[in-house]
């Protein structure tokens, strides 16, 4: 089965003056439908760049990104826009730049292309209610709590009924209960709705919800060690066995 999203040997550098900053170095990743992949990395590790490249917002310096078997580099801008509108949901915590939109309009934005305003708004309100942010429908971004913002961002991505969800740091600033709620929502999107989810978080406990875990460190994406190789590790102090 071809993975829904496949990054192969992706690399990306930024130039700061004469200094090259290697953000991603030979990164490969496969994500299948129904699977939630967690990418752990501290702030500035390159998680956002990885997601942006996966979404096709940015092009890698080397390597390829395929979505459902199609190389994103070969997609026209029009095709990419269509992907973003219909297939790839992007969850970020920046919210709309037009700070004055009520959330039901913001969430409905991807739908206006094919639906009239009434239908678009109806679906947006439903999406908001599904993620548990129904009360945010009439409010502008500025007056939302961090939790509501995270939920609205997820609703904004889910409203287009995407196949892939790219989630950038959804739990920043959230208390433990809300963090569990938001990550649980993403988990059920993968588990129950069959979406492929890539979630990048600088928070290890959130990783426990993921089916697969990777860590982004110095531009490289680390996979878990093989079980056999575990002998090399000194386990948790005092521990002689696994739970």
């Amino acid at each position: 089965m071809t993975p829904l999203l496949e990054l192969r040997a992706v690399s990306r550098s930024y130039w700061r003056g004469l200094h090259e900053m290697r953000v991603l170095d030979d990164v490969s990743l496969e994500v299948h439908a129904g699977e939630m992949v967690g990418v752990y990395g501290q702030r500035g590790a390159g998680k956002t760049t990885l997601l942006r490249i996966a979404a096709g917002f940015e092009s890698p310096d080397g390597g390829t990104v395929s979505y459902a078997g199609t190389d994103l580099a070969r997609c026209s801008r029009r095709q990419l826009a269509r992907l973003h509108r219909e297939q790839i949901g992007w969850v970020e915590r920046d919210g709309p730049q037009s700070g004055d939109l009520p959330m039901r309009t913001y969430v409905a934005l991807p739908l206006y292309r094919h639906h009239g305003p009434v239908e678009a708004q109806r679906r947006a309100v439903a999406a908001l209610a599904r993620v548990g942010a129904g009360e945010a429908a009439e409010l502008p971004w500025a007056s939302l709590s961090d939790t509501a913002r995270a939920l609205v961002a997820i609703a904004h991505a889910l409203v287009r009924e995407p196949r892939l969800l790219l989630v950038d740091d959804p739990t920043a600033g959230l208390g433990i209960l809300d963090r569990e709620r938001v990550v649980g929502l993403l988990r059920s999107a993968a588990q129950d709705a069959g979406l492929a989810v890539v979630m990048a978080v600088p928070d290890m406990p959130a990783m426990l919800q993921a089916h697969e875990v990777r860590a982004l460190s110095r531009g490289r994406l680390l996979a878990p060690a093989d079980r056999d190789a575990r002998g090399a590790v000194i386990p948790f102090p005092g521990s002689q066995r696994s739970a």
Binding site: M204, A215, L222, P224, D226, A229, R230, A232
Partner: peptide, 9 residues
């Protein structure tokens, strides 16, 4: 070691 940590996770 880091990879082992992920495995343990």
């Amino acid at each position: 070691q880091a990879r082992a940590c992920l495995a343990e996770l």
